[in-house]
Design a protein around this nucleic acid. Structure first.
Lengths: 301, 301
DNA sequence: TTCTTCAGGTAATTCTACTACAAATTTTGA
DNA sequence: TCAAAATTTGTAGTAGAATTACCTGAAGAA
């Protein structure tokens, strides 16, 4: 696909979000091409239904310039640009997610909440640093014991993590109050891993436990929503940049994002661990299923 | 959009998967249109890059027939078909060939997990019954007390919900073990609401508590991933249809989906409740922020 | 300045999507 | 059963969309 268009801005990976490619490439474009880029970014979804000539008119440039723009951002022509754009827009249909208002119908509200969460996940995906994730995976796969520290809203993420990781044969904990955290952290030793989760990265209880864990020689992984004090305290700092949460009514995004990151970590770790562990995992699931089928009194899922 | 193409197969909602629309509409198409449909279904992604004439040749029909086919399935022409197809394929791509394999690079894995979660949320969105949600909102906004029942993995969703709803001035609980659930349910009375969460809808502890709550006269809301026994037990049954979880390594989807539904419910309820409650909410946030700023020892977020 | 280079436009060209109409096929009614 | 009506499908033609070739003018270098 991009093999015959070796332009510097050509998309390197399979599905890079086209809008992002455009934004990133903006400075490298020529002046009038940039005008096209801005016109596209101003109202991306409309580009799907208008013609090349119309886009040229909107941008105040000639038609060939639009084509040159398309080629410059790694498309094979205007047709291809439309297809790629449609694909990119499929997830984040609403680029400018309008704020939720009390006058919204329920249908509108449902749409907005979904849109917001979807575009948030896209946002997070685009900004997640793979190297850091790799480091975290490496630390976790070799851990003798893993403890998850989360307080308040982040406690839920910690619990989620704690439910997943034991499946790979590593003992896990998720102490929920400050004292328990300290006690748990105090018991850690080299070879253990502490995963601290806090959206603000300022929660004192979590920070204390993290510092203590580090002093004890454990590897510390921090997961926060902003560059924060907690990340400084950690050996490995995973930054999960969520969409600005200007809206009063959707505080879920940070939790949701963190859970997806946890999902990635646990999946990667489980793949990295050796076969025997995977067998143990399958076995364990089988037993669980049997138990559930037997007396209908067991754990959900 | 579909207003000027009042064809019976026209897409009624925003984003129905086009491939599904085609499959569903197959029997209603005329013979030669069906040939086109089959050609498209045989290799959907290639349609994005070929011309109308080429598709006609592949299908063994004339060019106008291809256009008629496009109109028949609710598109506005071949151009529009390509755009809609590209959008649908953005999801389908993940749905079909997203099995995570041990040979995947970390980057591939990250992409797949995100893709899977994103397309899942889209899936859920398309299948969520607004009427049921409306009923749930109506019940919740008038509740004197709300209890969330979840066990195992679903306990996390219950906790999440329990963290959100008290903000609107209603006392909430989320008992986590079977005994506590029964005790809590036994204390409910008319005017109270019990929200039971279970992906399988078969968890016995949750079902027991739910039945008890209903006997006590409380309104019961069930949130499950499949049509299940639990839904039968409830006054209001919210079905959260997630993507088939064939994959061993991503059990998060059901939890994530349920959390988004909870998000919708809490947002809708908060909008529905009167001003005074909203003020209380803002006040509460202010106090929380002050406390955190003061001693740095408070709740996250 | 004059030459060179390159961004960007004009105009011509090709091809694509679509329309009008006619042929072919199927259905209906006597 | 056959002819008329209705419906499906193809042929041929066309508007206009995307693309290309080429030219102009501006900016920078010698």
């Amino acid at each position: 696909m991009s093999s015959d268009t070796p332009h510097p801005l050509a998309t390197t990976e399979v599905d890079d979000n086209l809008l992002e490619v455009i934004t990133r490439g903006l400075p490298d474009l020529r002046k009038s091409e940039r005008r096209v880029a801005e016109a596209v970014l101003a109202d991306p979804s409309s580009v799907l239904s208008i013609t090349l000539a119309e886009l040229a008119r909107r941008s105040g440039v000639s038609e060939p310039t639009v084509i040159r723009f398309a080629l410059a951002i790694g498309c094979e022509g205007f047709r291809d640009l439309r297809v790629k754009l449609a694909r990119s827009l499929a997830f984040a249909r609403t680029t400018s997610h309008s704020a939720i208002s009390p006058t919204d119908t329920l249908a509108a509200l449902v749409g907005k909440v979904f849109d917001f969460n979807l575009s948030n996940l896209n946002w997070v995906r685009a900004r997640l640093d793979q190297q850091t994730i790799q480091q975290a995976v490496d630390a976790l796969r070799n851990a003798n014991r893993i403890d998850f520290f989360g307080y308040g809203a982040s406690a839920i993420v910690a619990l989620d993590a704690q439910q997943k990781f034991p499946l790979f044969g590593v003992p896990c904990g998720a102490p929920l109050d400050g004292h328990q955290m300290i006690m748990t952290a105090a018991m850690l030793q080299p070879g253990d891993v502490a995963v601290s989760i806090s959206n603000t990265g300022e929660t004192e209880q979590v920070r204390q436990a993290t510092r203590l864990a580090r002093e004890r020689g454990a590897t510390t992984i921090g997961i926060t929503g902003t560059q924060s004090a907690l990340l400084e305290d950690c050996d490995i700092g995973v930054l999960v940049e969520t969409l600005e949460n200007t809206d009063l009514y959707t505080p879920t995004v940070s939790r949701l994002s963190a859970m997806v990151v946890i999902d990635i970590l646990s999946t990667a770790v489980s793949l990295a661990r050796d076969e025997s562990d995977q067998q143990r995992f399958a076995q364990m699931k089988a037993v669980l299923a049997k138990t559930r089928a037997g007396n209908r009194k067991n754990k959900d899922q």
